[in-house]
Design a protein around this nucleic acid. Structure first.
Length: 255
DNA sequence: TTAAAAGCGGTATACCCAGG
DNA sequence: CCTGGGTATACCGCTTTTAA
């Protein structure tokens, strides 16, 4: 990064110096500070930003000196030129920054899915598992839009309807425009499905939501990391079974 | 060009805690 | 003890990216 200071108005000499510095470099951020930018120099910076990729970034800053009350003089910078994607990237950077300030819950969720990923690597799985997110669920694609296998590690126990205990769930998640119809088609085969999967399922079809779920659930304590291995193993087994069993059913289901 | 997968962001709701 | 306002998060669905 190069900062060029100029106390007077911008002139060709300084512009020339900037270009000389920049030439031959693979990437550089150049900040040109001056009391006043002439229109042609501002336009020159705009043009440089336009014709170069995001490895070259040119900023033009006009400096003003402010004094508020009896306080000392403070500089104020006005941006007269910047790279086109600057605000975009700043916004992205800010959101990434926010992302690093995770709450305790989100940290645990992140850790859990990361651990789950390693577990799958070690033991193998039928399905692909996505990038760990700081959230209580993870989607696993099953091969048809509107359907997914969902892994859930939640601080909310949906059976007890309280936050006192936590839960793991393996779900077949049905969403999309035909969700209700698909759900009903599956519900007709309920006995066969529970027999084929060798599990009792919870059939969840809330009236005011478009999506439906069928799942198995296990009450756990996510804060007890000593038992995570057991949890990961349970969840992996359930998800593998769900994937293996439901994939052909879902793919063959009528539209 | 399309469907599927992955990722993103908004919203409703439960929870917590301060103040009456 | 009750209320209500702020906050964390569960949940939902949309948008973007990827792959066939």
């Amino acid at each position: 990064m190069l900062v060029e200071n100029q106390l007077k108005r911008t002139d060709h000499t300084h512009l020339g110096q900037l270009l000389t510095y920049a030439s031959g470099l693979q990437a550089v951020t150049i900040v040109w500070i001056s009391r006043h930018f002439t229109d042609e120099h501002r336009a020159a910076l705009d043009w440089l930003n336009e014709i170069t990729d995001d490895k070259f970034r040119f900023f033009g800053l006009e400096i003003e000196v402010w004094r508020i009350g009896e306080s000392g003089a403070a500089p104020k910078f006005n941006i007269v030129s910047k790279p086109n994607d600057w605000f975009c990237n700043v916004a992205k950077g800010a959101s990434q920054l926010r992302g690093t300030e995770l709450t305790e819950t989100k940290k645990i969720q992140m850790d859990f899915w990361t651990a789950f990923n390693s577990h799958l690597d070690e033991h193998g799985a039928l399905f692909k598992f996505g990038k760990p997110q700081p959230q209580y669920w993870m989607n696993i694609s099953i091969g048809r839009s509107g359907f997914a296998i969902e892994a859930i590690a939640s601080f909310w126990d949906s059976v007890k309807n309280s936050g006192e205990s936590h839960e793991l769930r393996a779900e077949l998640y049905i969403s999309g425009i035909n969700a209700k119809a698909h759900y009903q088609a599956l519900e007709l085969q309920r006995e066969d499905i529970e027999k084929g999967l060798n599990r009792q399922l919870t059939w969840h079809n809330p009236e005011n939501a478009r999506a439906c779920h069928l799942y198995t659930q296990k009450a756990v304590d996510l804060n007890d990391r000593g038992r995570w291995e057991e949890y990961l193993s349970w969840l992996a087994t359930e998800l593998n079974e769900f994937y293996r069993y439901f994939r052909p059913i879902v793919l063959n289901l009528e539209p």
